[in-house]
C-alpha cells in the first residue's frame, strides 16, 4: 500500500510568527502567537481503473486522510493524461437510477479517511488523451479547502488493489 504524507507550511503561520518576534519591552502585555496547526495528508490505495478503447472517461479511487477538519475541493492531472479533472459523486436517485455530478467540496473530518471508491466519490478524468493501461501511473494532485495540496501516483489496474 503506497502512502504519501506531505506536511504543508501555512503562510499565515509564518507571518504570525514573524510578527510575534517584534515584541516591545515598552508594553506590559504579552502577546503569544501560536502557529496554526499544519494539516498532514495521508493518501493510500490510489488506483485508476483501466479504460477501454474508445472510452474518453476514467476514474481514480483512493483514501485520503487529513489531520485537521478540511474538505477536498479539487483534483488535477497533467493534460498529457486528461483534458479535465473533476471530483464527482455517484448517487442513487429517487427512481432507483444512478447518476453522477461534480462536487465542489467534500467535507473531511480530522483523522477520518475519506474514501473515493466505486459507486461513490471519485476523481473523474475527462477527455482522456490515451487509454489507461495496466501498469501505468497517473499522478493526481488533490486540493483542499485549507489551501493545502498533496500529490499521489495512482496505479492503473483492472481491479482494486
Amino acid at each position: 500500500m503506497k502512502k504519501l504524507s506531505i506536511a504543508l507550511a501555512a503562510v499565515t503561520a509564518l507571518s504570525l510568527g514573524t510578527a510575534a518576534c517584534g515584541s516591545s519591552s515598552e508594553t506590559s502585555d504579552t502577546t503569544i502567537a501560536t502557529a496554526p496547526e499544519v494539516a498532514v495528508y495521508t493518501v493510500d490505495g490510489a488506483w485508476a481503473r483501466t479504460s477501454p478503447m474508445e472510452a474518453t472517461m476514467g476514474a481514480v479511487y483512493l483514501n485520503v486522510t487529513s489531520t485537521l477538519d478540511d474538505a477536498l475541493v479539487g483534483a488535477s492531472v497533467s493534460t498529457d493524461i486528461a483534458a479535465m479533472t473533476q471530483v464527482h459523486e455517484t448517487t442513487m436517485n429517487a427512481d432507483g437510477t444512478m447518476g453522477m455530478q461534480e462536487i465542489a467540496s467534500v467535507p473531511m473530518m480530522a483523522n477520518t479517511p475519506l474514501a473515493l471508491a466505486p459507486g461513490g466519490y471519485h476523481v473523474m478524468l475527462l477527455e482522456l488523451v490515451a487509454p489507461l493501461e495496466v501498469g501505468a501511473t497517473v499522478s493526481v494532485t488533490l486540493t483542499f479547502a485549507s489551501g493545502g495540496t498533496t500529490t499521489v501516483d495512482a496505479i492503473v489496474s483492472e481491479e482494486a488493489p
Binding site: 481503473r49 477501454p52 472510452a55 476514474a59 473523474m124
Partner: peptide
C-alpha cells in the same frame, strides 16, 4: 453507456 466512468466499468470489470 460507454462514457460512463464509474458504474459501468465497475460492473463490467
Amino acid at each position: 453507456y460507454t462514457m460512463c466512468p464509474d458504474i459501468c466499468p465497475t460492473s463490467l470489470s
